[in-house]
Every structure is written in structure tokens, then in C-alpha cells.
Simulated assay, not measured.
Amino acid sequence: MNGTSSSGKSSIAEELLQLLDGPCFHMPVDAFHAMRSRREVGPEELPEILRRTWRGFHRAVAGMAAAGNNVVVDHVLSEEWRLLDCLELFSARDVVLVGVRCSLDELERREHVRGDRPAGLAARQFPRVHAHGLYDFECDTTSASARDCARQISTFLPQRPRPTAFEQLRTKLRPDLPAVD
């Protein structure tokens, strides 16, 4: 699932795990950021630390999936390199790309209530996170509950299209990679 901070991805993922058959793993990028030591770093170091964290997260997700696990990922594709990295690493046929949308007003309200995000984070991500423009399924948490979105997604999964959005994006954005069988 891709969406801005505070869009409801983690809440949907928790609900999905209750609805999907078989064992599934929720892998939120926030968990990877939380594993990092809390040592203060300078603003010149932070971008590279964050990039390594995101790259490590992508490889952990790919490893779990390659080992045969079903993985529900919540992600923020607000930088193009993140999507390009995922397109290289993940099996494109097996990825169902879900866009989680929410109005900016509601995102800002949630962010304020949460109090655990930098002010304006969702607003900075908002114009970029869905820039690639292609999903297999989209939901809007502005008014729909996480449970309703999870139900919609679980109903959609058995009828996902071919080629998947991920396959189409891989062909379009990473033509240097071998074609998917």
C-alpha cells in the first residue's frame, strides 16, 4: 500500500491481516525507522541514513516474499528512486499495488492529533506520493474506515488484473530490467 503519512495504511494493514487467509506479515516502513538508534545526527547525514534505511526495508520485504511469505507492506513512494528500487527487487507479477488516498485537510488533522510526525510531513508528501499514477486498486480513507478499505481490498485480490500495475510500471520505468514471464 502506498500513501502519505497518516493516510491510514497501517490501520488498513492491521485489518487486512484479520481478513486474509493464511499467514501474512505486515511490514511497515515505520518499524524499520523505529529500529534505528536515537543518536542525534546532523542534517547533512540524515538523507543518506534515511536512504540506507529505505533500501534495507525494500530488501527485507523482497526477502520475506522470496521465501514464500505473503506480505502486506505500507510504504510512502514520495521519492521516485524508492519505486524504481522496488521495481527492481520485487516480483512484479506478485505485487498488488494499492493506493491509499486521503484529503489533505484530513491528513493534516490526523497528523496534528497523532503528534508523532513532523508538522507538515503529509502535506510535503501529498503532491509526490501518487505521482507514478498507476494502481491495481485504490481506496480513500477520508471517509471510509480502515475496516471498509481492508474489506474492499480483500474482495479485490482474487480478481486482480494482468498485467498488474507493478508489471506495467516496471515495463515503463525500468525497461533495462528483463521482461517478466
Rank of each mutant, 00 (worst) to 15 (best):
S7K: 02
S7W: 03
G8A: 10
S11L: 10
A13K: 03
L16E: 12
L16P: 10
L17I: 10
L17A: 03
Q18G: 09
G22M: 07
C24S: 12
F25Y: 14
H26T: 02
H26R: 03
V29Q: 06
A31Q: 09
F32R: 00
A34W: 02
V41E: 07
P43I: 01
E44I: 09
E45N: 02
P47C: 11
P47F: 09
I49L: 15
R51V: 12
R51P: 04
G56W: 03
H58E: 07
H58R: 13
H58C: 11
A66K: 11
G68Y: 09
G68R: 05
G68S: 07
N69G: 01
V71S: 03
V71L: 03
V72S: 02
V72K: 05
V73W: 05
H75K: 09
V76I: 14
E79T: 12
E80Y: 01
L83I: 10
L84R: 15
L87I: 09
F90W: 12
R93Q: 15
R93I: 04
V98F: 07
V98S: 08
G99I: 07
V100D: 08
C102D: 06
L104S: 05
L104V: 11
D105K: 04
D105V: 04
E106T: 12
R109C: 03
R110A: 11
E111V: 12
R114C: 08
A122P: 11
Q125I: 02
F126W: 13
P127L: 10
R128V: 07
Y135A: 06
Y135C: 03
T141P: 08
T141N: 11
T142P: 10
A146H: 12
D148Y: 12
C149P: 14
R151I: 15
S154F: 13
T155A: 14
T155M: 14
F156K: 06
L157M: 03
L157G: 00
P158E: 07
R160W: 00
T164C: 01
F166N: 05
F166E: 05
Q168P: 01
R170Y: 07
L173N: 09
D176R: 08
V180D: 14
